[in-house]
C-alpha cells in the first residue's frame, strides 16, 4: 500500500472572520500527482500555503510525513519544493546567482549545489541563460527557472501553484513533459490549476474546490465518467430555437443553458446527431464530455466574484 504523505482533516483557515478554507479533508499518497481545482478564491492557494508552512492553520489537522507545521516547519520546508503563483525570482541577481543563493537557504554546500544546478539547468533547457539577468528572460523561461529552483534540494514533495498560467501552448507542453518526467522519478506533486486539460493530463487524484470546500474528489477520468454523460452537444440558441424544446420529452439527455449557449449531454452520440438533424442544427459541436464540463457544472458557468 502506498504511503500517505500528506493528511488533512477538517483543515480550516480564516482571515479576519472570512473562511478561506472551510473544513476540508484529503490524503495524498507518495509519488502521486494530486490536483486542486477551483475558481479564483476557492481556497487552493491558501491550502498550499498551509502545507508549506507559510500560513498557520486556524483549525483542524494537517500532517506532512507525520510532522505538523506548528512543530516542524523547518523540517517540512526542507523536503518541499515550492513553485508559487508569481515568479518571485530575485530581480537583482542573474539566473545562476538566483540558484546559488536559493540553494544556500537550504544549507546545500557548493559541492552539492554546483553539479545539481548544472544538471537541472540542462533538464529545463536554460543552459545558455546562466549569466542572464532575470529581466531578460521570457515568461516561459522565468517559469521554468522557478520550477528548476524548487527542485534544487531534491524535494520529496513539489507544490505547483498554477504552474502554466499565462504561458503559450509550446511552453505549457514542455513544462507538462518535464513534470511527467519528475512524477515518474517518484516526486509527489500537488498541483493547483485553472486548466482542466492540465489536471486531466497530470493528476492521478484531484479535488474540486469552491468557496473553501471540497465539492468532489477522485480520479479525473472516473469522475467525468461517473458524473457526466459520455457526449455533449454544444449549440447556440437563436430566435428559432428554444431550450425547452430539448428538455421536453427527452429522458435520454440532460440539458444546460448558459446565456445563448446550450449544452446537451447524452451517452449516445447517435441520439445527439439525430436530435441535431431533427432540429436542423448547423452550428453544433458534438464532443466527448470533459473535466471542464464537470468543473463548470459544479462551480457554475457564471462568475461568482
Amino acid at each position: 500500500m502506498a504511503q500517505i504523505v500528506i493528511k488533512a482533516k477538517n483543515l480550516s483557515k480564516s482571515y479576519n472572520g472570512f473562511n478561506s478554507v472551510n473544513g476540508i479533508d484529503f490524503e495524498v499518497e507518495s509519488s502521486q500527482c494530486f490536483g486542486f481545482l477551483g475558481p479564483n478564491g476557492a481556497g487552493k492557494t491558501t491550502t498550499m500555503k498551509m502545507i508549506y508552512c507559510l500560513s498557520p492553520i486556524t483549525e483542524g489537522e494537517l500532517k506532512i510525513y507525520d510532522m505538523t507545521p506548528e512543530k516542524c516547519a523547518a523540517k517540512i520546508k526542507s523536503i518541499i519544493g515550492v513553485v508559487p503563483q508569481d515568479n518571485n525570482l530575485d530581480p537583482q541577481l542573474t539566473v545562476g546567482e538566483n540558484l546559488v543563493i536559493y540553494a544556500r537557504f537550504f544549507g546545500l554546500p557548493p559541492n552539492l549545489y554546483k553539479p545539481r544546478i548544472k544538471e537541472l539547468i540542462s533538464f529545463m533547457e536554460l543552459d545558455k541563460k546562466m549569466d542572464s539577468p532575470i529581466r531578460e528572460l521570457s515568461g516561459g523561461m522565468k517559469r521554468r527557472l522557478v520550477i528548476l529552483r524548487a527542485l534544487l534540494h531534491n524535494p520529496r514533495i513539489l507544490i505547483l501553484d498554477e504552474p502554466t498560467t499565462g504561458l503559450d501552448p509550446q511552453v505549457r507542453h514542455l513544462i507538462w513533459e518535464k513534470l511527467r518526467e519528475l512524477k515518474s522519478s517518484g516526486v509527489t506533486m500537488l498541483l493547483t490549476t485553472h486548466y482542466l486539460e492540465e489536471a486531466s493530463q497530470l493528476c492521478d487524484q484531484l479535488v474540486i474546490m469552491d468557496k473553501g470546500r471540497i465539492l468532489m474528489a477522485g480520479n479525473p477520468h472516473k469522475l467525468v465518467a461517473e458524473h457526466l454523460s459520455k457526449y455533449v452537444m454544444e449549440l447556440s440558441l437563436n430566435g428559432n430555437l428554444c431550450a425547452d424544446q430539448f428538455r421536453f420529452d427527452r429522458p435520454k439527455c440532460y440539458t444546460e443553458v448558459y446565456g445563448s449557449r446550450c449544452y446537451v449531454y447524452s451517452d449516445s452520440e447517435q441520439f445527439l446527431s439525430l436530435t441535431a438533424e431533427e432540429f436542423n442544427l448547423e452550428s453544433k459541436l458534438i464532443r466527448n464530455s470533459t473535466l471542464e464540463d464537470l468543473f463548470l457544472k459544479l462551480t457554475g458557468r457564471g462568475l461568482s466574484q
Binding site: S78, P84, N88, L89, F105, F106
Partner: peptide, 14 residues
C-alpha cells in the same frame, strides 16, 4: 514589489 520574502520563507528559513 519583488516578493522576495515569499520565496525565502518557503525554504527552511523562518
Amino acid at each position: 514589489f519583488e516578493n522576495i520574502y515569499d520565496s525565502i520563507l518557503s525554504t527552511p528559513i523562518s
